[in-house]
Amino acid sequence: MDDPAHRWPVSYPKTSQNRATLLGPPNRPPETRGWGHPEGSRILRFAGCHVSPSPGEWARSQVLQAVARDYPSQDAAAVMSILDLYGSDASEPGRVRVQLAILTLSHGDLEELRKLVAHAKRDYRDVLYWTELAQEVRDPIGGRFFEAMLVPALTPARLALLKETVPEVTRVAVFWTRGYPPHRAQLVALEAKAQELHLTLRPITVARAVDLGSAFVTMRREQGDSLIILTSMMLQFHLRELADGALRGQVPAISELPEFPRVRGLMSYGPSVAAMRRRADASAENLVRRLEHEELMDVAAGRPLEPELVINLGTARALGITVPPSVLLRAAEVIQ
């Protein structure tokens, strides 16, 4: 996050308070926090004999299996070379656990892998924390910061923008999380806008990351021809999977987060990165004021929200969509 060239979601948390919520004090060995160690030992068959692998061999095999799962075989050597940069220094703890976390977050993207390894070398706890959030572990403090950065009021405008970009859409799927309070209000606002635009909404619940595959199956079964993704703490770590699923299904999709079109989603419309950071800073200041019993700030006050439209024209071409000039002229960023 220190490098502005990094393209991770702007909302990746990195405060020590948030990490402590999930991981415990940093001086505890990483093997005793979060994931823990698998129990028991696996028995390998070798030359007709049962051989118990050493703990180091077993751990290494987990990394190799994850690489084989997420990356093409021709990239395996390069992936391992990059991964092994973490742990090359004796001061870098939890080598296997951190490497597995990096693989989980990289989603088969070599460039993302390099960035995550570089960040882990600066502070491995951030990478472990992000992985816990991606696996649906809730963090009340981080969740409040995240929600402070978003602007649910723009959700109906995203629906209108999607309709303007692809006028032929009629049945819009909405990926939302039933237990996430901000989403209910957004659904109500979307229903009103859908009636105005003569569209049919198909809300589809995505409570866990493992639900994404079945959500796309449901969308196809219900003949959804477009998609709106309501942002949540968990879904922000799966934007690439969402973009890939929409592209495979030949469905135009829009998100609030500008990272979405950067990972091959069609478009995003939401507050600028600068505005999101200002709102997060104000939310952090309010947390301190609350603890000190001082008057709270208005997070939404101050400079305007500066909503920005980001469009991926490569994805539009792959979907057979010609983006209208009226939409292109409003784009703050166009990805070719």
Score class of each variant (00 low, 15 high):
residue 73 S to T: 14
residue 328 L to H: 03
residue 144 R to Q: 14
residue 127 V to D: 05
residue 170 T to N: 09
residue 227 L to N: 05
residue 287 L to N: 01
residue 166 V to E: 04
residue 268 S to A: 15
residue 139 D to E: 07
residue 97 R to F: 08
residue 190 L to Y: 05
residue 98 V to T: 15
residue 172 V to G: 04
residue 239 L to E: 12
residue 282 A to W: 01
residue 69 R to T: 15
residue 162 L to M: 03
residue 170 T to C: 06
residue 34 G to K: 09
residue 90 A to I: 10
residue 42 R to F: 04
residue 214 S to I: 11
residue 126 D to M: 09
residue 165 T to E: 05
residue 221 R to H: 11
residue 111 E to I: 11
residue 23 L to R: 06
residue 256 E to F: 06
residue 305 L to M: 11
residue 105 L to S: 09
residue 128 L to T: 02
residue 269 Y to P: 00
residue 256 E to D: 13
residue 81 S to P: 01
residue 212 L to W: 02
residue 53 P to G: 10
residue 165 T to R: 04
residue 233 M to A: 15
residue 201 L to F: 07
residue 178 R to T: 14
residue 7 R to D: 14
residue 54 S to N: 00
residue 11 S to Y: 06
residue 152 P to Y: 07
residue 121 K to Q: 15
residue 182 P to W: 06
residue 231 T to K: 03
residue 322 T to M: 05
residue 320 G to I: 09
residue 302 G to W: 07
residue 169 V to K: 03
residue 65 Q to G: 07
residue 230 L to N: 04
residue 153 A to D: 14
residue 25 P to E: 13
residue 329 L to W: 04
residue 211 D to N: 10
residue 92 E to R: 11
residue 96 V to G: 01
residue 18 N to W: 05
residue 204 I to D: 03
residue 65 Q to E: 14
residue 117 V to F: 11
residue 36 G to A: 13
residue 301 A to W: 06
residue 303 R to Y: 04
residue 169 V to F: 00
residue 223 Q to A: 15
residue 272 S to R: 05
residue 232 S to T: 15
residue 146 F to A: 10
residue 316 A to P: 06
residue 276 M to W: 00
residue 10 V to Y: 03
residue 273 V to K: 10
residue 70 D to M: 13
residue 161 L to I: 03
